[in-house]
Simulated scan of single mutants.
Amino acid sequence: MSRLRLLAMLLGLFGLGACGAVNPTMPLAPNVDLQRYSGRWYVIANIPYFAERGKVGSYFDISVEGDRFRDVYWGRSDFASEPSSFTMTGYVVPDTGNAYWRESPLWPIYLSYLIVYVDQEYRYALVGYPGHGYGWVLSRTAEMDEATYQGLLQRLAQAGYDISQFRRVPQRQEDIGKPGFQ
């Protein structure tokens, strides 16, 4: 999919209302250390939407410099294919404990990136979006045990999410077709 086509779909999905300031509609992580948050995050589960639906082995690479960041998504249509990517850049909203980001696929469009939770060791994170229509369960490793996954889903439920909408993202060939996976 071309970048221009992806951008057009993003604009249609999030609408021009995403251009203005948006207040978070859920509690955020109290204080995110941006340097510790930087790096690779595997997508363990998400609420599937067009850009990530059906992708396998997906992850985000996040780099932060000051209050600016770069968020690169990588995903494959199958495990035999090369990964494709799209990049968002943005800034951290001041006075939010570094948990509220505004990211853009193309100026002047900005979308909200809400860090709902990150554990003390920065192994797991939950990312949301105003209105609860999009959400992600992230991990520093490609695999997550079921007890940890269920505990993170409960945190999302407490933040107002309908956790039945989340689907696990296959990170290994043997995950494909398992219950609860895309």
Rank of each mutant, 00 (worst) to 15 (best):
T141M: 12
L111A: 13
Y100E: 06
G90D: 08
I176Y: 04
L153M: 11
V137A: 08
V92C: 12
G135D: 10
Q120S: 15
L111K: 01
Y122F: 11
A142E: 15
Y149F: 15
G180W: 01
R140N: 07
I176C: 12
G177A: 08
G135M: 13
D162H: 13
R168Y: 09
L114I: 04
A125D: 08
D95P: 00
Y117E: 10
H132P: 00
A159D: 09
Q120M: 02
M144S: 06
E174R: 12
K178Y: 03
G128H: 02
L138Y: 10
Y100M: 06
R167A: 07
A147W: 02
D162T: 09
Y161N: 08
V92T: 11
A99L: 07
V137F: 08
G97F: 03
Y134K: 13
L152F: 02
S104C: 10
L138P: 00
G151Y: 04
E121S: 13
Q150S: 12
A159Q: 05
E103D: 14
G151H: 12
Y122D: 11
W136M: 06
L152K: 01
Y113P: 00
A125N: 12
E143H: 11
P179G: 12
A99C: 13
L153G: 06
R123Q: 14
G133N: 14
Q165Y: 03
F166C: 05
Q154W: 00
D119V: 01
A99V: 04
V92R: 05
Q154A: 13
G97R: 10
Y113I: 03
R123H: 03
Y91R: 15
G151V: 00
V137R: 06
Y100P: 01
A147E: 13
P105T: 02
L111G: 10
R102G: 04
Y110A: 11
L106E: 09
L156H: 02
V169N: 10
V118Q: 01
P94E: 13
V137P: 01
A142H: 13
V93N: 08
P108T: 03
V137E: 09
W101M: 08
D119E: 06
Y129E: 08
L111W: 08
R155S: 06
K178W: 00
Q171G: 09
L152A: 03
Q154F: 01
V118A: 14
R168V: 08
W136R: 03
Y124Q: 06
W136V: 01
L126P: 05
Y113A: 01
M144P: 00
G133E: 15
V169Y: 01
L111F: 12
Q150Y: 06
I109R: 10
D175T: 10
H132G: 01
A159I: 00
G135H: 07
L152V: 01
V169E: 05
P170F: 05
A157D: 09
W136H: 02
R172D: 03
L114C: 14
P179D: 10
A147Q: 15
Q173C: 02
L126H: 05
Q154H: 07
V92F: 00
V169A: 11
S112Y: 04
S112D: 15
